[in-house]
C-alpha cells in the first residue's frame, strides 16, 4: 500500500496545471480528489512519474447557471453536487447520482472531473451525464474543446481525454419545466460501484412522452445511452404497459459484463428492472 516514488507538483491555476502537464509529459497524472488515482498508486497498478495536484484550484469548483446551461467545475466534489439546490431543482438525476457515489468520505473528497477522467465502467456519473446530454470541456495549452458525453466515454477506463488535456467543466443543458429525471442504482455491496446504474430523463407534453433519454452505467464496459428503450417509449402514453415494454428492451444492444458477484444474465435482468424503476419514478 505504498506507491513508488513520484514527483509532486501543486498547480495554483488551470494555466499552471496545463503548463505542468505539458512539461511533465505523458508520465504525469492529474490528482484531484484522489479517490481513484491514489488507491491505484498505492496498489502500484499505476505508477506515474509526476502527480499534478489541482485540488487547490478554487476556480474549478463551482455550480452555476450560465444562460441555457448549468455548468459544474471539474473540481467540484460529489458532496457539493449532492447538496446543490440549483441542480436539485433543474436536473434532479445529477444530484441523485452524486448522492449515490461511494460513502460520505468519498463524496467529500472525490470530484466529478476526476471520476470522469478515470472512466471506471461502474462509476455513477456517466449514466446521468449521458441522459442529460452533457458536454465536457477539455483544456490544453493549445486551447479548449467541448466534447459531448456520448463521444467522451470510449471504453474500459478509456476516454477522449488527451494526454495534455485537463477536464475543466461539465455543461448540462437546462431542461424545460416538463422534464423530470432520476438516477437509480443497484450497487456492488463492497465497492458501492454500480452493478447497474440507470438514469432517465423524460419530457412530457399532452400526456405522451416527447423526449426520452435513458442511459446505463455498470452494465457494459462503456456507459451507454439505450436508444431501444428511448424509442420504445417516445411518443407513447406513460402507461404501466408501455413502461414495461420499453424496459424489456434494456441492454439488448450491448455486450453485458459478468463477474464473480453478478453474472451477465443477472446484470441483464437488473438492467430491465432498473430501467422500469427509473421510468416509473419519472413518470409517476
Amino acid at each position: 500500500m505504498i506507491p513508488s516514488e513520484f514527483e509532486y507538483c501543486r498547480a495554483g491555476s488551470v494555466e499552471e496545471a496545463l503548463d505542468l502537464l505539458a512539461q511533465k509529459g505523458p508520465d504525469a497524472k492529474i490528482l484531484a480528489g484522489g479517490h481513484s488515482l491514489l488507491p491505484a498508486m498505492k496498489l502500484r497498478l499505476n505508477s506515474p512519474g509526476a502527480v499534478i495536484d489541482i485540488s487547490g484550484i478554487g476556480e474549478l469548483s463551482y455550480i452555476k447557471e450560465e444562460g441555457s446551461h448549468l455548468v459544474i467545475g471539474a473540481c467540484t466534489t460529489h458532496g457539493d453536487i449532492a447538496k446543490s439546490t440549483l441542480l436539485s431543482e433543474k436536473i434532479p438525476m445529477i444530484v441523485e447520482a452524486a448522492a449515490e457515489i461511494g460513502d460520505v468520505q468519498v463524496r467529500n473528497k472525490g470530484t466529478i472531473g476526476g471520476s470522469l477522467a478515470h472512466a471506471d465502467p461502474a462509476a455513477d456519473w456517466p449514466a446521468s451525464l449521458l441522459a442529460g446530454e452533457a458536454e465536457i470541456v477539455l483544456a490544453s495549452s493549445s486551447g479548449e474543446r467541448t466534447v459531448a458525453a456520448v463521444d467522451f466515454f470510449q471504453g474500459l477506463f478509456t476516454t477522449d481525454l488527451g494526454e495534455n488535456e485537463l477536464i475543466t467543466e461539465i455543461r448540462l443543458p437546462i431542461p424545460d419545466a416538463y422534464t423530470k429525471s432520476t438516477y437509480v442504482k443497484f450497487e456492488q455491496p463492497a465497492s458501492r460501484f454500480a452493478i447497474v446504474g440507470c438514469a432517465a430523463s423524460i419530457t412530457r407534453s399532452n400526456g405522451s412522452c416527447d423526449k426520452v433519454r435513458v442511459a446505463f452505467t455498470g452494465v457494459s464496459s462503456t456507459p451507454f445511452r439505450d436508444q431501444a428503450v428511448e424509442q420504445a417509449l417516445e411518443g407513447q402514453a406513460p402507461s404501466d404497459d408501455n413502461i414495461e415494454a420499453a424496459a424489456e428492451k434494456a441492454a439488448m444492444s450491448v455486450e453485458v459484463m459478468g463477474d464473480h458477484f453478478a453474472s451477465q444474465e443477472y446484470r441483464k435482468h437488473l438492467a430491465k428492472v432498473y430501467a422500469r424503476r427509473a421510468l416509473q419514478a419519472v413518470l409517476s
Binding site: P39, L43, A190, H260, F261
Partner: peptide, 17 residues
C-alpha cells in the same frame, strides 16, 4: 473466493465487504 488457478478474486475491501 478463489478461482481454479488459485487466484483470490476478492482480495481487497473493494470486493470483500
Amino acid at each position: 473466493i478463489y478461482d481454479e488457478e488459485g487466484n483470490i478474486l476478492n482480495g481487497t475491501f473493494m470486493d470483500y465487504l
